[in-house]
Design a protein around this nucleic acid. Structure first.
Lengths: 346, 346
DNA sequence: GGGGTTGTTCAAACCGCTTTGAAGAGATGC
DNA sequence: GCATCTCTTCAAAGCGGTTTGAACAACCCC
């Protein structure tokens, strides 16, 4: 059933039927009712391709997922993010388009989006420091918003980010207040902007108390369980080991706990952990009592908010770039406690 | 730059240019070369919407993700699956379309896909037993393949599945061979087809050795870390507790280990664990030495294979439904050991 | 040299929708 | 009663491609 057939059935022109369906005012209310009824009865809905060809809009948003061919890791927060964004798209009659692309192939994908007018806008994931994609998108004129930020980019753009710096400063402060002095940082890859900022927050809190920054206490890797485990296991064997771990992901935190318990130590007593928690639906931080003390921020909510931001930017192309900085929630769980008393050297 | 402009520049008709670009034989090789060069020089690529309107194909595949509004869980394997599928789409010039949809709204989405000709086919995720979506898709005539299977459906359809029954039978056998007699099953939701089959495998192995099936040793829930933890904690407190756990997901297995260690027991000595492992990129089962003894099958590979299956089905609409049954790999890790000697009752 | 091939190109129709510009029918004003 | 407005509807022209059917030229064979 297409528009031509439907209008023939109704004995009306395509013009009138189209206008009736799209809510234009210049159509008699009686005929509009008839049209809507007939459309429903014959289960008509417009062909998306034809519609977007005619209007120039595509009613689709692109998400480009870079995947480094070397470390074949899919960002584990991605599922939750798009489920938040997907809700918004569904409510606004937009489609979500996903492109998995090898690192480096992104430029072509974005240019293709524009020239082939596949999507009306894109959400940029996983911004790195000085991320070149931002200037690229500005240049080719494809509306976009960024999940995160990119230090070192001067052109204005829209973004939504967690305040990673303050979050990790607060977390570090929290540990310092408990008396910890040797605090390890298990960070994500530090060319990623969020990881960079987290490190800044950590260093800032230490410096504020005139404590040294010890490179041997810092690791930066992809945030897997294994990373948490091996880094912790190694650090616990050296003389004067850390008494607390600040971890960038709950997944790695699970590995940290594993190493701690394997070493015969007790989490929250012998060694403390604070982790960042993205409120992933499949990896909640305990049930009623949180397992880990954590800085929490829902990535699903971020998906909702950011997609909304993009849609309103598309509707209103002349508006200025917007930005949102989310503060984390610090929830205290069972993984932190006062620093153990220092063993006196004989 | 569109086709009209490009052909004007070349002094050729749109027909010839279009044919040259699409590799039709009735075009002079010399002109084809000229056309291709000009297309590249002017950075021309066809408008996707116009193209699919003209051809009737949309070059897009739909993935419909049901999200129960009650338990707001995004399937954690989803990210890896689509990253596998995405590779295949990229190589074949297909787009991937994602629809997040509230449970129950799926029928409308599928019908919309068909009537609005949004996609050329869909991949069906998370089949339940007697899944009604399969008959629906057959009825509306939208090409589809299923990730998994649906017991109780008689109409033929294409699918790719892990042999869940044999996997869990083997795993149970493995534990039985180690002397375990009280083996707990922490399963996914058993209206999901895969979980149902896993249970069958478990029961089959027990029955084959004339062992009783004890309902108090079986739990069926969403496969979170918390589920693994609470179920294990509870089961370990009863008299005559299980000595081994068969777990449906590595995420839950992490919770099981947490409960075991919290109870002061040692995994692999006091209590054994076997888990199913989907080879998730962000949750690998240890590095060189696997943490858990596991039945493993890569969900990313499944994504690759299944999307390939769908594309070939679309190209060849009259072909018969295909199916693939993948056998798991049983990898022995540190989480299993002989059953502890039975304490003699006095 | 006329009929039949083959190779190459083109104008025009078409895909299914939106939107412009025009036009018919009443209603209104003077 | 005629010009002028609204209200409502319509035919036709896009949007940017693909595909059909025809045309033209060159070549071949008797």
């Amino acid at each position: 059933m297409n528009l031509k057939e439907l209008s023939k059935i109704l004995g009306l022109s395509q013009t009138t039927v189209s206008r009736a369906l799209n809510g234009y005012p210049e159509v008699n209310e009686a005929t509009r009712i008839k049209v809507l009824a007939a459309a429903k009865a014959h289960n008509y809905s417009p062909n998306l391709r034809a519609q977007s060809l005619a209007t120039g809009r595509s009613n689709a948003i692109g998400h480009v997922i870079p995947m480094a061919s070397s470390h074949e890791m899919v960002n584990p927060i991605f599922g939750d993010f798009i489920s938040g964004a997907g809700e918004v798209y569904a409510a606004n009659n937009y489609e979500m388009l996903l492109s998995i692309v090898q690192d480096g192939g992104e430029e072509n994908v974005y240019r293709g989006f524009k020239t082939r007018s596949t999507v009306d806008g894109v959400i940029l994931h996983g911004p790195k420091m000085n991320d070149s994609r931002i200037d690229l998108l500005t240049e080719i004129g494809l509306p976009f918003v960024v999940h995160g930020r990119a230090s070192g980019i001067s052109t204005p753009y829209s973004w939504l980010d967690v305040n990673n710096r303050s979050a990790f400063a607060r977390a570090t402060d929290f540990l310092l207040d408990l008396g910890h002095r040797r605090i390890a940082l298990l960070n994500g890859l530090e060319f990623m902007d969020f990881a960079h900022r987290r490190r800044l927050g950590y260093e800032e809190a230490l410096t504020a108390r005139h404590l040294p920054i010890d490179a041997s206490l810092m690791r930066s890797e992809e945030m897997t369980e294994t990373f948490g485990y091996t880094a912790t296991r190694d650090m616990l064997t050296v003389p004067n080991p850390p008494t607390a771990f600040l971890v960038s992901s709950i997944i790695s935190a699970l590995g940290v706990r594993r190493a701690i318990e394997e070493a015969g130590l007790v989490m929250g007593r012998d060694v403390s952990i604070i982790t960042h928690d993205d409120s992933l639906s499949y990896l909640t931080n305990g049930a009623d009592v949180p397992i880990f003390t954590a800085t929490r921020s829902s990535v699903r909510d971020a998906g909702r908010a950011l997609s909304q931001m993009l849609l309103s930017q598309i509707q209103n192309p002349t508006s200025n770039p917007q930005s949102t900085l989310l503060e984390v929630e610090l929830t205290v769980g069972q993984s932190t406690g006062p620093a153990p008393a220092v063993k006196q050297t004989a």
